[in-house]
């Protein structure tokens, strides 16, 4: 099973490092990263495998959201099915 992590907000040093470290700590394996910065606005999408998560997915998502709000970022982790269902028949 995979989840999609989206990170948006004002750019600063160490965003990817912080999110990656959090994922590693919880045993979420990153399989894909797309990231860019447009006029100081940071946007990143990560696809992670969540089969071996060491915490319930809800806690993983809540942890990322908290990490984001501490840095003034919007970080969301959502099960990939919501995107697949909405955009693929």
């Amino acid at each position: 099973m995979k989840a999609v992590i989206t990170v948006t907000g004002k750019d600063s040093v160490g965003i990817i490092a912080a999110v990656s470290a959090f994922c590693a700590e919880k045993d979420a394996n990153i399989t894909e990263i797309t990231q860019n910065v447009l006029s100081e606005y940071f946007a990143m999408i990560m696809i992670v495998e969540i089969d071996k998560l060491t915490v319930p997915f809800a806690d993983f998502a809540a942890g990322l959201a908290a990490l984001g709000s501490a840095r003034g970022l919007d970080i969301r982790a959502m099960h990939e099915d919501i995107f697949n269902t909405m955009h693929h028949i």
Binding site: V4, T6, T8, T34, A43, I45, I47, D74, R76, E80, I82, F83, N84, M86, H87
Partner: peptide
Amino acid sequence: MLNVADILETIGMIRE
């Protein structure tokens, strides 16, 4: 296969 535009569209619908 997920693409960035689809992901951002869904996030935008929920957030904005």
